[in-house]
Design a protein around this nucleic acid. Sequence first.
DNA 1: CTCTCGCTGATTGTTGACAATTATCTGATA
DNA 2: TATCAGATAATTGTCAACAATCAGCGAGAG
Lengths: 238, 238
Amino acid sequence: MAALKMVSAVAKRSLDKAAADALRQAIVSGEVQPGTRLTEMEIAAQFELSRGTIRAALQRLMGEGLIVQRPYSGWEVATLTSHDVWELYTLRASLEGLAARLAASHPDRRARMEIAFDALKAAADSGDGREITEADLSLHKTIVSLAGHSRLASQYDVVEQQVRMFMASSNAILPRSAMLIENHVPLVTAVSEGDPDLAERCASVHSTSSGEILVRHLEAQQHTHAGEAAEPPKPGWR
Amino acid sequence: MAALKMVSAVAKRSLDKAAADALRQAIVSGEVQPGTRLTEMEIAAQFELSRGTIRAALQRLMGEGLIVQRPYSGWEVATLTSHDVWELYTLRASLEGLAARLAASHPDRRARMEIAFDALKAAADSGDGREITEADLSLHKTIVSLAGHSRLASQYDVVEQQVRMFMASSNAILPRSAMLIENHVPLVTAVSEGDPDLAERCASVHSTSSGEILVRHLEAQQHTHAGEAAEPPKPGWR
DNA sequence: CTCTCGCTGATTGTTGACAATTATCTGATA
DNA sequence: TATCAGATAATTGTCAACAATCAGCGAGAG
């Protein structure tokens, strides 16, 4: 009975939400690359749903910044320039700074942080890149969750999804495992120990520095590959 | 011709966006109070549009946090508890801290800040509460605009709209004019002078302190009026 | 009298068809 | 050959009808 209820709870979400989830997953996993054109009819046929339902899902994803709309012309998976990545990481630093400050006052911070950090260590030992990324993101999300701040959580979600999309579509830079753990120690310690000011600073510099590395890497790549695979100024855009 | 073009540019937006704007305006101006139930058919009749179009507009507003959806039951203008107000002001403090930090490096910061601050002073002299509020919000928005950060700007917009909704529906607390100007001096100075660290701190404490005042006021009100005008546990909810 | 079960009205969820708009292609022309 | 105008196909914008679901109400059993 309980199992049945759970199944129905999963299956029962409205179709537009389900479609939005499926599309979001396809985008953030890198299955559909940035710049891909999406047409309502095509997706509707693929999902065996009507255009109106798909349309609602697409509008939702547009609100999350994953796709952009061209009136009377179509939808396109958002492409991120190095400036966009800079925006993502500065914004994330700010949001996570607030989250860490608040999380440092939560009663359960020690236990929750320890679980998340242990998972990250285990993932690092495994050496599986995908698992490492998940554990990393999960650790940060734990902090956001500890903040008890629903608006912060939802805005952070938007940023995280775009970060995932970026990571999936670019050759993400994976720091060495030892480095990865070390980079998180100050933040984890500050939150666990319950020092709001320090936690905020640690979170902020953590995101800011990893963002700066990425942006520099991107701009270097963009410079060396300048004009090499630069798409021709695609006529229209199909 | 230019005027015509402008008119068409205004009139040409898709109907769902236009409807969303009109509804948003009605909500943030306090014309429709928090807790009000909205039905798609009623709004569609009022706007002389189809339900589908109104539905798209409502979903957009839901993404902005102004209304909430009850599946198969209806839409409701969001009601803000004191915890929600706390969320709004802490989030705003964080976002505006980042904005101020970035704005402090913008070449045009001096001129833009001076214009906005002069407008605030003029509004304060006029004594018109509505005008003061607008100038106040406009000054903060100037800082956000100077940051050159589109994601920050859009997330700040969401927060600002909810703040406006709150101010319109509650008996907003208007500080004395002299106090209002004084409270802004450190922030304006820090941004104008171009000190990122100081600007961030000033913006953060500015929002945080005004938020704390509001939350305290709300909780006091809530305490004194406890059970007085507490709506009966409305059956259904019309 | 109280509680449960099923009915009913109202509202959203979903769909397919039609209208408006845009991008592309074609062909003529300088 | 390059350029511009109009036709054309493809796509979204908008609408009205049908299906699914929920809150409330009342009858009947305990």
